[in-house]
Nucleic acid binder design. Structure first.
Length: 265
DNA sequence: ATGGTAGGTATCCTA
């Protein structure tokens, strides 16, 4: 079967009903992973997703900040959440899809403005979560699991994942300590960067554009912060991948756009 | 060099 998985940082799920309807109609994901839902679980708009054909839902949210959710047309099993760095926030949801596929939906801290862990606790938290994830996946290395890791990792790892590599080397999201840390996480389990397998690293590719630009499309100062990775066991199933840049130009947009992979599983 | 916008909450935090 063909399995389509979409990840999107919605920047408040309650404000994005129109965009979510378009995503479902135009991308037709089987599984939709959200980040920055910014809502407690008892206020999550379950009715909307039930109506849109996603009867299986795992929501993991909190008031005002962060929050992740997995919405699925297919049954979900063993849904749970993980905490990192001893912090009681909502950044990681895990479910098993049919075929034993283990899906991880992640929201890595943005990290604040100052790229110095001594001076900036938010940057220290970002690096600490990356290290803990790296150790956790390294312990599972070689277990042959069928893993999909998606989400807003808040790091643009490659030179062509940002509008100007040189100008962003000291900007949080593209500093060497972050891009090397993300590389270490990827190598810890042998994850394949699915989107860059389909869209070559020589091409500029972004999934986020700041709200602050006068004209996001004309200035095009984007970054590729949202990712879909596959474990070695799932890598051969990759059919295609797509970044919906046009979604940034929709009415009332998120600052992130949806990223999708299709797998033949 | 600076400030720019958006979301949630309750007056300022985070992105």
């Amino acid at each position: 079967m063909r399995l389509r998985i979409t990840t999107w940082n919605a920047n408040s799920v309650r404000l994005r009903e129109a965009a979510l309807r378009r995503i479902v109609a135009e991308i037709r994901p089987d599984v939709l992973c959200l980040q920055e839902t910014k809502v407690e679980d008892h206020r999550f708009p379950h009715e909307l997703f039930a109506e849109l054909g996603f009867p299986h839902r795992h929501v993991h949210g909190q008031k005002a900040y962060h929050g992740v959710a997995i919405l699925s047309k297919l049954p979900l099993e063993d849904c749970h959440a993980r905490k990192w760095c001893g912090v009681d926030d909502c950044r990681h949801a895990i479910c098993r899809l049919p075929g034993g596929i283990e899906l991880h939906d992640l929201y890595v801290p943005a990290g604040g403005d100052v790229p110095d862990p001594e001076a900036n606790p938010k940057f220290a938290h970002k690096l600490a979560m990356l290290r803990e994830l790296t150790d956790w996946f390294a312990d599972r290395r070689g277990d042959g699991a069928r893993l999909v890791l998606v989400g807003d990792l808040n790091i643009a790892p490659l030179e062509n994942d940002v509008w100007s590599h040189k100008q962003l080397l000291e900007v949080v999201s593209h500093t060497p300590v972050e891009t090397e840390g993300l590389g270490a996480l990827q190598r810890a389990y042998g994850f394949l960067d699915a989107v860059r397998t389909v869209i070559p690293p020589e091409k500029k590719l972004y999934t986020w554009w700041s709200y602050r630009a006068r004209d996001w499309d004309a200035s095009d100062r984007g970054r590729r912060l949202d990712h879909i990775w596959l474990s070695p066991a799932l890598a051969p199933t990759l059919v295609t991948a797509e970044v919906r840049r046009d979604a940034r130009g929709w009415e009332n947009p998120s600052d992130h756009v949806p990223v999708t992979v299709e797998l033949e599983v």
